[in-house]
Amino acid sequence: MLRPSTPIRLLDLAAEHAALQPALDAAVREVLAEAAFIQGPAVGQFAAELGAYLGGAHVVPCANGTDALTLALLSLDLPAGAEVIVPAFTYVATLEAAALLGLRPVLADVRPDTFNLDPVAVAAALTPRTGAIIAVHLFGQCADLEALGALAAAHGVALIEDNAQALGATFQSASGVTAHAGTVGAVGTTSFFPSKNLGALGDGGALLTRDPARAALLQQLANHGQSRKYHHQRIGLNSRLDTLQAALLRVKLRQLPANTAARQAAAARYDGALDDISGLKIPVRDARSSHVFHQYTVQVEGPGRRDALREHLHQCGVPTSVYYPVPAHQQPAYAYLGYRTGQFPVAERLCETVLSLPMHPLLTVAQAAYVGEAMGYFFAGWE
């Protein structure tokens, strides 16, 4: 049985943070000295720095990525029961935010190549009750913002970008305009969950927009709906990014461009090792979008083969994960929506075939080569 010369981790936060330890320690000491743990100076500083990184977007920090989705929908002031189109292949938070607000998630299938929301399926799902479309930029590259934006504009509905997995990616329209993921629709959301490309050392999230009026509204909604202390114009949430997490994120934001380049280099090495394996599909890139590789997710063809490969890799010392094993319409919590097995065939097939390999900025050339070698042995034996 193959074994790696050095341990391979799905992600390696301890090693990433060790390289930043002096700067992280200094950030903690500064927050402790200021003792402004809620809405301290670092929160506004981080928002401004992230906004500059995203080409001048307004950034409204909040407590986590799910709150960001909830606040984005709250800012639209949709009537109870309004429909929100979401992908059938996504993390449950996309549906959860709509359901908790009394809105109705409406599922649409995804593309079999990029895993992102299929505009053709969205067009079929639109009704007079549709209030918003949530495009999830899955695994690190943008959904078809041009087609989805056109549909949203034509039907007078809002486009929300769930950008938790693609912070730093860009999308180029047919006219040649390039924009950062999360800044194209009415509002974008992101998460700073520790495993994200820009991860906190706890929880956190943010909303992104180019509209200053919407940014002001989002800021109000995230702070109990108040315009100033003890004056509440709206029903809002208590959803604030801790000062300590903002200070730590400022340190990590400075490393994000280099870390993104390292992820892209690791993905290219995987491509070279895996591209010629029959029965395996490497990630497809949309030529209009950059890819920041939150995950490197392959598709394994053949009944039962994905799970067999996963067990083989485990025996070889290669950790993997499946994002996601159950499509949204088969989750018991959302049975009330009335969908049946077979209605979203692409999402159902992906749940049976996708496999995410180790991906982080510190993945070495030798480790990527070893993963490729271990996978090659499996497919050679399968044949």
Rank of each mutant, 00 (worst) to 15 (best):
Q331C: 13
R288K: 14
G342I: 06
G304L: 04
A333D: 11
Y323P: 00
G317V: 05
Y324M: 11
A308Q: 14
E301H: 14
V292D: 01
V346E: 08
Q295V: 02
G342K: 05
Q330R: 14
S289Y: 02
H291N: 08
Q299R: 14
P327K: 13
P345I: 05
H294F: 12
G302F: 07
Q330N: 08
G317M: 04
L309E: 05
Q295D: 12
V318E: 05
Q330L: 15
T341K: 13
L313S: 14
V346H: 10
F344A: 00
Q315H: 15
Y336H: 15
Q330G: 03
S321R: 14
G304N: 10
C316F: 07
P327H: 12
G302W: 10
F293E: 03
T297L: 00
F344C: 00
V346S: 07
Y324C: 05
F293Q: 00
D307L: 08
P325G: 12
T297W: 00
P319V: 05
G304W: 06
A328Y: 01
V318T: 06
Y323A: 04
R306K: 09
R310I: 06
L309C: 13
H291S: 04
D307T: 12
A333C: 03
P332S: 07
Q295P: 00
Q330F: 02
F293G: 00
S289V: 06
H314E: 15
V326L: 08
P325H: 10
R310A: 15
R340S: 12
T297S: 09
V326A: 02
Y339D: 07
R306P: 00
A335D: 07
T341W: 02
V326F: 06
H291D: 12
G342H: 11
